[in-house]
Amino acid sequence: MADITDIKSILYTEKTLGLQEEGVIVVQTSPRMTKNALKEVFREYFGIVPARVNSLNQDGKVKRFRGLAGKQNDFKKFYVKLPEGAQIDSLAV
């Protein structure tokens, strides 16, 4: 059972801000989150049923620090299309 704590963040980049104008929110979550679980979270906490949800698994980058290799965490990214006219006020920039 997924809940709101599985959502790590809302991504705010130049590309995602352009998508927000079209009604698409980009959400970063834990890798175990599913499309149906994310739809349920949006329905329960925001009162909105997404029109469409696309997902993308993002592997963590390999970085070097003082000669030692390390790896950032893997995450899942969701592109959530909101219904026409719907808006989440707390997510607006």
Rank of each mutant, 00 (worst) to 15 (best):
L91R: 05
L56R: 15
I25T: 11
Y79P: 02
V62F: 00
K63G: 02
Q28M: 06
N36F: 02
T16D: 05
Q87M: 03
A2M: 06
L19S: 13
F75I: 00
F42E: 12
G60P: 00
L17G: 01
E22D: 15
K71E: 10
K15P: 03
T5W: 04
V27K: 13
I10R: 06
G23D: 14
N36Q: 09
D74F: 02
L91S: 02
P83D: 15
G23E: 11
Q87P: 00
E21V: 04
A86I: 04
Y12F: 15
F46S: 07
E14S: 11
N36Y: 03
L56N: 13
F46Q: 11
T29K: 05
N73I: 03
S90F: 09
V24Y: 13
P31M: 02
D89A: 12
N36T: 11
S55T: 10
S90A: 14
K35F: 11
V49N: 07
G47M: 08
I7C: 05
D3S: 14
Q87R: 04
E21L: 15
M1A: 12
Y45I: 02
Y12E: 15
G60Q: 11
L19T: 01
P50C: 09
Y45E: 15
V26L: 08
M1C: 08
L38V: 09
T34S: 14
R43A: 11
N54R: 08
R32N: 06
R64I: 12
F75M: 05
L56S: 11
F46G: 07
L17I: 09
E22N: 13
D3E: 14
E21H: 13
S90N: 05
N54M: 00
V53F: 03
N73W: 00
V49I: 12
N54S: 09
I48V: 14
T16Q: 07
T13Y: 04
G85N: 12
A69Q: 13
I88F: 10
F42V: 05
T16F: 06
K81H: 11
Q58I: 12
K35L: 13
S30M: 10
D89H: 01
Y79A: 07
D74L: 03
K61S: 04
K63R: 12
V80P: 10
F75N: 04
F65E: 03
G23K: 08
I48L: 05
L56D: 14
G60N: 11
P50Q: 07
V62M: 03
Q87A: 09
D3P: 05
G18L: 14
V93A: 12
E21T: 06
D6I: 03
G67S: 00
A51T: 06
E14P: 08
L38G: 01
V49W: 02
L17K: 05
V27H: 07
E40R: 06
Y79G: 00
L38A: 10
E44A: 08
L11W: 00
P50E: 10
Q72F: 02
Q20L: 15
F46D: 14
N54F: 05
G18K: 15
K61I: 08
R32L: 03
D74Q: 00
Q87S: 12
L17D: 07
N73G: 06
A92R: 08
P31W: 01
G67P: 01
